[in-house]
């Protein structure tokens, strides 16, 4: 029976490291132009924090797309919804969030993140059953129905919370900056980075170490075969959709605190950003989404400093460059 592996060379484990190094490369290229070390550190850390927030919002979208080929144009509405839910927690509990106690501050922040995730997950369930499920596999209708859902959701948010910007102050102990050498590092950015990294680590753990995670990865590649092995991919999918919506809400809270205000239009703006990120990363790839988020955010920050006029279109230029290099994104998912 040894004939089977006779002549079969040991397949080399190819780990594609190059795309993962691109953020480093970008930082190295940008550094001499920025000149001052402290500015560079500030910009880089700001970029990382922003990248982690974008990743939190975008990672669910890429998995939802990978698993069921569903591109949810309503994803942005969950970002806004999460932010509004946070105002419902943080504003009435302003006593806690403005108290001079790190414990109380963090407790109320965690409560807001939790509430936003739960509400968005629950609304995600309804959204999936009512809007997405009836049009599985029909791309055109799917795009249109989820756009319709996004419009309705945004308008409902306006109707419920009013059309004005709602200010959302940061918890007291997350305001201000540390001074590291000459560089000022905003405390909140550190906090956002920690949350984003935790989300990434959690996802990686689930995807690589649990059976559910294996099922998701297998389903992204070939959902029919997953069913032929005896699993209900539609149940798996609704779970992923809810988790993705919850993460969008979580990201929405982070972003709203970063901007210190909430408005229903933020979802539509961030939707474009999340699309760019998941295209750059490779549709369906969480790791690609992570690298893509960091890249987009770093370049936005560097460009904002070096060529402010270009900053807002820098991510489009980045997308074009990445796609010229790798037409299916940094980490194309096999099987699609």
């Amino acid at each position: 029976m040894s004939v089977i592996d006779a002549g079969a060379a040991l397949p080399r484990q190819r780990i594609d490291i190059l795309p993962a190094l691109t953020p480093l490369l970008v930082a190295l290229v940008a550094a001499p132009f920025i000149g001052s070390a402290s500015t560079f550190v500030t910009l880089t850390l700001a970029g990382l924090a922003m990248g982690m927030m974008i990743f939190t919002m975008a990672s669910g979208l890429t998995l939802v797309f990978g698993l069921m080929d569903v591109l949810n144009f309503g994803h942005g509405a969950f970002i806004s919804l999460g932010a509004y839910v946070a105002t419902l927690v943080l504003l009435p509990l302003a006593g806690w969030s403005q108290a001079d106690s790190l414990g109380a501050n963090l407790a109320v922040l965690l409560l807001a993140l939790l509430a936003a995730s739960l509400v968005c997950g629950a609304v995600g369930f309804v959204f999936e059953r009512v809007l997405v499920k009836p049009v599985y596999g029909q791309h055109l209708k799917q795009i249109m129905v989820t756009i319709g859902g996004a419009i309705v959701a945004e308008q409902l948010l306006y109707a419920l919370f009013g059309p004005e910007f709602i200010p959302l102050p940061l918890p007291a102990s997350l305001r201000g900056s540390f001074i590291l050498g000459n560089a000022a590092i905003e405390k909140y950015r550190i906090a956002a980075t920690i949350v984003g990294l935790a989300v990434f680590a959690g996802q990686m753990l689930i995807l690589n170490r649990t059976k559910i995670g294996l099922l998701i990865r297998a389903g992204v590649e070939n959902r029919e075969m997953v069913e032929a092995l005896g699993y209900r991919i539609d149940r798996l999918f609704i779970g992923v959709f809810m988790a993705g919506s919850a993460l969008a809400g979580l990201g929405g809270v982070l972003w709203a605190l970063y901007r210190e205000q909430v408005h229903a239009s933020m979802g539509a703006e961030l939707l474009v950003l999340t699309f760019i990120v998941i295209i750059i990363g490779g549709l369906g790839s969480v790791g690609g989404c992570f690298i893509g988020s960091i890249l987009v955010a770093l370049i936005a920050n560097y460009a904002g400093f070096l060529v402010p006029k270009l900053a807002l279109v820098s991510n489009i230029l980045l997308m074009v460059v990445v796609l010229l290099w790798r037409p299916r994104g940094l980490y194309p998912v096999s099987g699609r």
């Binding site: 294996l214 990865r217 070939n222 075969m225 069913e227 032929a228």
Partner: peptide, 23 residues
């Protein structure tokens, strides 16, 4: 449903093999 048929004890080896190459 295909998954229920699988649970009834049917296993399928498709022509494309359909191994999960990322796993």
């Amino acid at each position: 449903h295909a998954s229920a048929i699988a649970r009834a004890g049917v296993a399928y080896v498709p022509e494309t093999m359909a191994v999960f190459s990322d796993l």
